[in-house]
Nucleic acid binder design. Structure first.
Lengths: 233, 233
DNA sequence: GACCACTGTATGGTCAGACCATACCTAAAT
DNA sequence: ATTTAGGTATGGTCTGACCATACAGTGGTC
């Protein structure tokens, strides 16, 4: 086996068993977003385990953005299947950045890769750019670095969305969210943000005109402007 | 706030509080990989919550690949900080693929992007290619489709590793792992794998000679060979 | 003194049962 | 028909217990 996930020799834990059962049920019963899982107590009874174990399994699924739990009674209550990979990815990146097991440089390089790809694909597909234009006008109204970064993030995520690939978009959103703090610092260090504004216009226009290569170049130049220290070498 | 992770109006759950406390402690105490968290019972006592809540928080951290729990006594026991983003990403992708909230096409496109980027970066950096050569020779010895895919996966992950970006490598590994099943099907459908073998040699040689553009082209051609149905249009 | 078997103990893993907060459902009261 | 009060199923939390694991110490044996 590949070395990717070596697990120590250990009896399967109960909640892992529950996890596998739930996953199997999702696959076999063709459950999809919006469907409900049985109540915790019922699941525990059906699987012959305690409620704690079921809860730990559900907690894992919730962490992975697969279910969402709501108390109370009615159609919205209980563990509902959802699709929220973004927050899971964000948490993952944030924690590993905090643990220093990932460096900012790596995150920004990854973002560079994604954004270039997304911009050129969006251009090639002649994607709708109204969301990008909205974010652009939002940046003009921004009065603080935080507000600026917020609209900047929206712009870049809109590029990823425009690529039409939801996985890429989710990764992009998580990357931005997890490095939000550093982005604010970068903007404050930069002072004048007009060049970023111009860069964005250039990206938007390239996508609008369907010029994939120019869109990729524009993204690359933009990141070099935003993080000069990482691209100086 | 950005729309990325809207949380319904709800009192913070206890385990979320514990989660935040642990994360804060990691950041403030500068804890890093290898350090131990207090025992569950102690943590519960310190934070004034029940052990169940602590356990649910630890389960989340374990899911995200940040801690690893071991029973018993001694230096290895307890919740130890680790850095295993790969399995978390793999689980996430696998589950969302199962939920049909992600399509195989999106995963393969993402892989295409990553692999092109990694190959050209590895070439530009004149990275060590011995791991790639090892995987290549492993493919020659493979006697079943599963074995073939295993070494194929190793080869492609080695490309990502050679790029020097751990985040990209982790994403690559997860993508491969989560679509392993489909890769076996693709190989079986293909029958003759010699063309894949030739493709790999071409990629390896391009990286070895530092030809970034050729490496990217070779990767692109290779994926077209492996998944002709997705690139025919 | 070196080695080995036994016991103690701190740890995670699991279970059972209780209670609370929430939110819908229902039936009675107006 | 509307309002209101109670019922009930749900998740969230807590308590306390017990088991399995694996190291740490203890004592005996050679």
């Amino acid at each position: 086996m590949a070395d990717s996930g070596w697990h120590p020799v250990r009896r399967t834990r109960t909640f892992e068993d529950v996890l596998a059962q739930i996953e199997r049920r999702i696959a076999e019963d063709g459950l999809t977003v919006g469907d409900r899982l049985p109540a915790e107590r019922h699941l525990a009874g059906q699987l012959g385990v305690s409620r704690s174990s079921v809860r730990e399994a559900l907690r894992v699924l919730e962490t992975l953005g697969v279910v969402s739990s709501h108390a109370g009674r009615g159609p919205d209550a209980g563990a509902v299947l959802t699709s929220r990979p973004d927050s899971a990815l964000t948490d993952l990146l944030r924690l590993h950045l905090g643990l220093a097991s990932l460096e900012l440089r790596e995150v920004i390089d990854t973002r560079h890769m994604i954004e270039q790809w997304a911009a050129s694909h969006a251009a090639a597909a002649r994607a709708d750019t109204s969301a990008l234009a909205d974010a652009l006008s939002g940046m003009d109204r921004a009065r603080t670095a935080e507000e600026f970064v917020e609209h900047d993030t929206a712009f870049h995520c809109a590029i990823a969305d425009a690529s039409g690939n939801r996985l890429v978009a989710a990764i992009m959103r998580s990357l931005r969210d997890s490095m939000c703090k550093y982005a604010v610092e970068a903007v404050e260090r930069l002072g004048d943000t007009s060049i970023l504004r111009t860069d964005h216009e250039r990206i938007l226009n390239a996508i609008d005109r369907g010029e994939a290569a120019e869109a990729a170049r524009a993204v690359s130049d933009h990141l070099a402007h935003a993080y000069p220290s990482l691209f100086g070498q």
